[in-house]
Design a protein around this nucleic acid. Structure first.
Lengths: 153, 153
DNA sequence: TCATTATAGTTTCCAAGTAAACTATAATGA
DNA sequence: TCATTATAGTTTACTTGGAAACTATAATGA
């Protein structure tokens, strides 16, 4: 050996434990929303449209931390499921706007319940104080590293 | 509205913040290890082989929380890169054993350094006490939910 | 023994993302 | 004005994973 430094174990990294928990939460949530016929990325997409009323695909790409190509394909799928509408902007024929259909708008509250349930399954058994600490620590990392988006994958 | 319950915002869920941080850490690490020509899944694979000396693909699938199919394909890639060897078990022609090549064994310490660096980038600025709290909270969720594996995706 | 069942690993088909090329339209500025 | 450049969205080629079918071999038990 040219160095005395030990080869660190996977479990020595906080990032490892974060990934284990985060992926378990996401997979559990994916299972729940699949019962409503959507994916986690589709949930995020629909939830953002719910607030935005209408939004450009490129803006959504920015907000979701995904490429425009990915948003384009996500839109195709949600359109096929009749959950969103797409309109060409009359002032700028390059631009589109996306909006929820009535079906899409009706689905969001059900998905939001599933998200609440999912979070509760993982965190409700923590003492309230611990939940606050966890939230504070995570948000401090987000602001320290200036993390803006929701990278899905 | 049929219900008075508000539609919860994405940012109200702890799972959301966990995913933001976890994905940022993984993406940052992916960028680092790509300079060494490997992916995050390949790092985990190599690190496990480093300890195990030799291991069966199905055992590795179990340990990594991936399917045998995925391990089969991961093995192909690592074999192509001359980082692992595959041998047929003479006692049971169905079974294989995997082991690191010298090149693979030489790579692991460099990747372990990158993992250390990556963790430090995200967590070194936290007070020591906070790091311990975060670790304790995450591990308590792991044990409470009996999370066993490293789901990569 | 040998038909049946189980196990190990591989392969095929599919899903959903990225990067980068591509198309259409708009904005800019010499 | 109109050639050049920028922007919006789509498409293509590729990556990497899962699910399930498939192949080869081993174990079981009537």
């Amino acid at each position: 050996m040219l160095t005395n430094e030990p080869i660190s174990n996977l479990r020595t990294h906080l990032g490892y434990w974060l990934r284990v928990v985060s992926n378990a939460i996401s997979q559990n949530f994916a299972r729940k929303v699949s019962a409503e016929g959507v994916t986690v990325a589709e949930w995020v997409f629909l939830r953002m449209l719910f607030d935005a009323e209408s939004i450009a695909p490129s803006q959504l790409a920015e907000n979701m931390g995904m490429t425009r190509g990915a948003i384009s394909k996500l839109s195709d799928r949600l359109f096929e499921k009749s959950l969103i509408e797409r309109e060409e902007n009359p002032d700028d024929k390059r631009a589109h706007t996306l909006a929820l259909t009535n079906a899409g708008r009706a689905l969001v509250p059900r998905l939001a319940r599933l998200a609440d349930e999912n979070d509760a399954e993982f965190f409700d058994k923590l003492p309230h104080e611990e939940r606050l600490r966890l939230e504070r620590i995570l948000k401090s990392i987000v602001s320290q590293r200036d993390l803006k988006n929701i990278p899905i994958g």
